[in-house]
Design a protein around this nucleic acid. Structure first.
Lengths: 259, 259
DNA sequence: AAGATCGAAATGTCGGACCAAAACACGAAT
DNA sequence: ATTCGTGTTTTGGTCCGACATTTCGATCTT
């Protein structure tokens, strides 16, 4: 047998045998994304799709299941049920990302790197784009954060504070990424280690400073301060973790931010 | 709503009726993520799962389909087929993100904001972490980029250049995000508009400068130059697009509008 | 021994039946 | 007239059994 017919040994891409459900799913997905089905609208009933597509109900259901996992539709039983088109939600991005992190066993350092890349930028955008309502919401959480003493609540409020800052940037996509990244960090055991009173004090003053820059609509300042805040935190954690390899230097001018 | 509600039914979370397949999927997912099934290993055959789980093959297949969409397994027909555990791939993150962007109709400005947040950071990290092999690979693409004259090839090589820089940062997660974001940008019509010879010239000198900083392992310089490069590009594009609202500029002057 | 052929084992597809949930229609009780 | 059941209808959810398709291994042939 001539190894691989004739002249082309390895040039062809791996042949992909499409399943019937994949084809239908692709068609429906295309219709949805092109706006032929608006969010809130109902797709045809399964048995109707069977009739109009010519494939069995098993395959039709498989296709719908695919779209459901992708977050494009939700499907409910009952008389007025069916498959409703919806906008893809944040969780449809966050869940795969979380699986990716867990499956690849991404380490804390990389996760914090992501925050370090995204959060200062978002803080700057928030300073630039925030509305008064945004500010009010942030102040509310900030007040609760300052007042909180209980450790477990503290951690939650800390995260909420950062998310509130990110949300006020009015960049939906970046906020979604930030939220998606925060989740694995929050659940990683390394992050759950004890937070000392010292660290909490430092965090509170840092938050205060950042918030002040946001109030003043000072974009570069908010960005810089958020960067310092995160860097300081990372250094503290990795130092305590007995992992000095990941120390990052403070940006530019030394200001001796931490105790 | 967030008022104190004692003993009244407004507090319960939305009831979640789990499908049979969801339960099995959850169990298998947990087994996989906890390492009970290593990547490359085979899950039990569908009919075995039917026997051991007690649910029908329809539901078992549904569960497996779920895991497949999540990227945790691949399943092939045939005698030695079955469901093979695998590490979650980049595309399992990129695809949902792309759907999110298309479904929410995220505008180009937000997408570029993402690049502006991520890429300079990655360029810095690349300057810090690159190996000689990384550098060689980048230089190779860079040379091709400089030499290319054809427009369509140019765009592809331009993207490749940026991806190569990002890949050399050795931060898997951030690179994945960068790649995932680049894809929608590349396909958006607004980006596909004509690229003038002027812009290409500017890009080539900018790339040269960035690469020089990467060679010199100068982290802040690489970062700064990448930031300038992207900002300049965004300004050019949005100016041409007749959309002056997204100019990146100091917030200096105040808008005069009705209070 | 190389090649063709057949069988076995696994997923993929099908059709039909039935179950469960949810809204609706309609009638009885208040 | 309003409310409360109660049944009906429509829809997705589940099960079953059969067959199709793919792939590998074994056996047979030359």
């Amino acid at each position: 047998m001539t190894k691989s017919s004739r002249s082309d040994p390895a040039r062809i891409t791996h042949i992909n045998v499409p399943k019937a459900s994949d084809i239908l799913a692709e068609q429906l997905r295309s219709l949805i994304l092109n706006g032929q089905y608006q969010p809130g609208e109902l797709l045809p009933a399964e048995r109707d799709l069977v009739h109009s597509s010519g494939i069995s109900r098993t395959s039709v259901r498989d296709a719908l299941r695919l779209l459901e996992v992708e977050g494009l539709i939700t499907t409910r039983p009952g008389r007025a049920g069916g498959s409703t088109v919806r906008q893809v939600g944040r969780d449809a991005v966050a869940r795969p990302l979380q699986l990716y992190v867990r499956s690849r066993e991404i380490d804390l350092a990389s996760l914090f790197d992501c925050r370090l890349a995204v959060e200062p930028f978002l803080a700057g955008r928030t300073a630039a784009n925030r509305t008064e309502a945004d500010l009010a919401h942030i102040e509310e959480i900030h007040a609760a954060f300052l007042a909180e003493e209980d450790i477990s609540h503290y951690k939650r409020l800390n995260l909420d504070w950062h998310l509130a800052i990110a949300a006020a940037s009015h960049n939906d996509l970046l906020y979604t990424l930030m939220e998606a990244i925060s989740d694995p960090i929050f659940e990683t055991s390394g992050y759950q280690q004890a937070t000392t009173a010292e660290m909490r004090k430092a965090a509170k003053t840092a938050h205060e400073a950042i918030l002040e820059a946001v109030r003043a609509r000072n974009e570069p300042l908010a960005r810089k301060r958020m960067e310092r805040h995160l860097t300081a935190y990372i250094n503290t954690v990795s130092a305590r973790h007995g992992d000095p390899s990941r120390r990052s230097e403070p940006p530019a001018s030394e200001e001796h931010q931490t105790p």
